[in-house]
Design a binder for these strands. Structure first.
Lengths: 221, 221
DNA sequence: GTCTATAGCATGATAGAC
DNA sequence: GTCTATCATGCTATAGAC
């Protein structure tokens, strides 16, 4: 709540603590506990006491590992970024990029449905990072990571030059990500499974179309 | 922070206060102050004292008009929903629905760029409502209001039956809204104006395509 | 590295004068 | 309807024993 402190450049840690094996473990447990508490109660109701309880750690231990509540929150976001790629490692495998888009979007959609509160928590954290002076780069990195990952999943056709592949892949990835984020908010607000499913299919068609258009432009050059 | 209180069914007010002219004015000032404080500092840092200061009202006055901080927050969201329609009343006018989509999306995009913090605050509040037991309906109503509004903006072709017009219009509106929300998050995270502009155009093409497809299906029947 | 204990202050909310 | 004053509690963070 206090604003006197200067923002943490490094979200990872505040102290040099956590070098030993047990230390690393405890640090991880704190982050996990914070994430769970955040998922359960939302950022507005999150307190260090809840984090400690959720991590099964005494209150003072939090501050041995982290400078402040802010540092913990940013570390949770960092953890989510790191976890992201591993979540989908049962990856789609279709040969055609357009089919991969469809598979990927349906897979993501399934995962989102299973992790509602985590999705909400992640958006809360993104907004928190955007608000926190000195932490905007974290939100940027989060999106960068998602875009890189999706991009690589969609386009790996060696017939296209590396440069163009990356340009187009990232554009499609950004488009996909826009749809996914918007879909999360809308689905949880409307809670109409039927309508959500329709939107996913519409998003698939749109993303495919966008990819096709970008590739066609490429041909014409 | 306490959870003992039972949730407010009505977000509008908590007490019967605010019947007089001055009372209504003060109530409005509190809501406006709360919104401004929220826009400036984010929900995580929002306190009743900040709200009071921002509304130029003493702390106790807040509680004369509202049962709790929660009630104030939900009232702010309600206010945003009410303001929504008026924001775009300089409405697009093209005759062709597809052109209206383009105009509308570019207009919305401009407005969003001018009100960055308000957009973030609104998403924060939506998530807060989704978290708050008994207030989920507010998030739903918010989306319903947006969808109704966009729907009506896009489709008013009398050549189509009322029922179909509404079905298609709402589907397109939902699609647009997904794009807009996703775009808000991504743009503020990446803060790349160039890339954002591209995404808006991609979204326009996609939304037009979606409308066209829905209308074609309609023809075939 | 983790604990107990507590400092020191901010918080949401209320009592009661005017 | 708005104020001053204050309560009870919860908050983040720290000191210091083990």
């Amino acid at each position: 709540m206090k604003a006197k402190r200067q923002p943490a450049r490094e979200a990872s840690s505040g102290k040099s603590a956590g070098a030993t094996k047990k230390g690393i473990e405890t640090r991880a447990r704190i982050i996990r506990g914070a994430r769970e508490a955040l998922e359960n109660d939302g950022i507005e109701a999150l307190t260090t006491r809840k984090i400690a309880a959720s991590a099964n750690v005494r209150l003072a231990t939090l501050h041995y590992y982290f400078d402040s509540k802010e540092t913990i929150l940013l570390a949770v976001l960092e953890g989510m970024i790191a976890d992201m790629a591993t979540s989908y490692h049962t990856a789609p495998l279709a040969a055609d990029p357009e089919d991969r888009i469809a598979e990927l979007l349906r897979l993501i959609w399934y995962y989102i449905g299973e992790t509602r509160n985590r999705q909400i928590a992640q958006i809360e954290l993104t907004l928190y990072a955007l608000r926190t002076r000195g932490a905007e780069w974290l939100a940027e990195r989060q999106y960068g990571a998602y875009i890189d990952f999706y991009s690589q999943m969609i386009l790996n056709d060696p017939a296209i030059s590396q440069e163009e592949r990356e340009r187009i892949g990232k554009a499609v990835a950004r488009f996909m990500l826009i749809g996914i984020d918007g879909l999360i908010l809308q689905t949880f607000a409307l809670h109409d499974e039927e309508v959500a499913k329709e939107s996913v299919e519409a998003l698939i068609v749109a993303t495919r179309g966008y990819l096709r258009r970008l590739l066609q432009k490429e041909q014409v050059r």
